[in-house]
Design a protein around this nucleic acid. Structure first.
Lengths: 231, 231
DNA sequence: GGGTTCGCTTGATAATTGTCAAGCAATCAG
DNA sequence: CTGATTGCTTGACAATTATCAAGCGAACCC
């Protein structure tokens, strides 16, 4: 495992507080792998053999049932995924596939659990990570249950625009995946975009322009307790 | 704080591994309170002053936005709620109210964080608890995004019936709350119950009878990765 | 007992969302 | 360049879900 990757990992809050010996032990079993786009990394139901860390590229977490499929989240560098399954030694609840060319670190889950048992700082860091993941999913549930698809899209656009600060920006994912993430069909997303035109949203391909942020905000009614990703 | 309650708390997996001194310290700031039904305990957005433990009764966790409201979960004895907010010192994402007469222990969040910082066993227990909560919410999201309301109801009934093993059982909550929990209106729940009649479901007040479990299972297609509360 | 409240149900109707089929424009391989 | 593929859009239609209004029956209060 090259030193540069080691440093990237150590810069993660999840690993930064660990004792050096424990971090070394964890790295001993780790390996890095490069994947092409659209490669399945894990399937829901599998045993959690590895904790994954995305160093470069991006990964789609998705779920299937009865022939249907839905996108749950996108993982971008540098962060981990399926931490909960790894520490619980329980089957993955989600599948994962690369969206683009990606570099991923694989840490044997057994090592993670062993070191988690003897390194208090690591355990505390995991608590922080899990609590944040938990709160994200709760927010997502609120979004789904309390809002219509038009409202979900409006708030999504405001979040994206808010994080860049610009009134114009590029969608970070394919529209079909955005539709799935927001819990609707691609056809419906198309219509939803047009439904937001009266509130000052213009769509040109994957470029979004919000001409009247106040108008859109009045409609979307974003909430710190649903849309604030920071906490 | 009476000794009997202390013991109930100590029997919780969350506290059972702690060092005695730390447990004592945590208990020093704790107090028990009895609440009548329908009392608001916390409101989403509030600062997380206390970690709550339900000793008796039951508590509804719910969320509101823009005049709408939805039920997220029911907490039954003996378990905690809003652990994530407490350890993160972040605002509650959900409100809570008693459903019936309830006895609740309040542990100052600050004490929880302090002791979490110095007791590794406690930190590890919190990891287990959070990971389980996280996985529950993910399952709930899958249920919402991948299934129709009829399918959600069918699987809910199978889960309830499965946990008792009997073909006949009482609903554990008001139908209107069940509707909200399942993400539909009360009117729709009524119709959904009738929609399950062809699959061998009979409803009499709050008593449910599943006359043909195989038939219902064929329709509901329950999945370990959505409906299994144990893991 | 008689009236009131409350939760549930039902019917009629409307809004939302999904499905199917077709078409269009950009991309890509040969 | 040309044909094929792919993702997106649109229209027509169907299914699902919500809303509104009314009614029913059990529980509760006076």
């Amino acid at each position: 495992m090259p030193e540069s990757y080691r440093q990237e990992l150590q810069s993660l809050k999840l690993f930064s507080g660990m004792e050096k010996d424990n971090f070394d032990a964890l790295m001993r079993g780790a390996y890095v792998q490069n994947f092409p786009p659209r490669i399945d990394l894990i399937s829901e139901g599998d045993a959690p053999d590895f904790l994954h860390v995305v160093l470069a590229g991006s990964v789609d977490l998705y779920c299937s049932w009865n022939g249907r499929e839905t996108s749950m989240a996108t993982v971008r560098p540098v962060s981990t995924f399926i931490l909960a399954a790894s520490v619980q030694n329980a089957p993955y609840l989600m599948s994962a596939r690369t969206l683009e060319k990606s570099r991923i670190v694989l840490l044997p889950s057994e090592d993670v659990r062993t070191i988690f048992d003897r390194d208090g700082a690591f355990a505390r860091a995991i608590v922080g990570e899990l609590a944040q993941c938990y709160r994200s999913v709760v927010k997502n549930t609120k979004d789904l249950k309390l809002r219509t698809s038009l409202e979900r899209l409006a708030n999504y656009l405001l979040r994206q625009s808010g994080s860049t600060g610009a009134p114009s920006f590029e969608l970070k994912m394919e529209k079909r995946r955005l539709a799935s993430f927001l819990g609707m069909t691609p056809e419906n997303l198309s219509r939803a975009f047009r439904g937001l035109e009266p509130y000052g949203v213009t769509v040109t391909g994957s470029r979004i322009e919000i001409t009247d942020a106040n108008d859109l905000t009045d409609f979307a009614k974003p909430s710190r307790l649903i849309d604030d990703y920071a906490s």
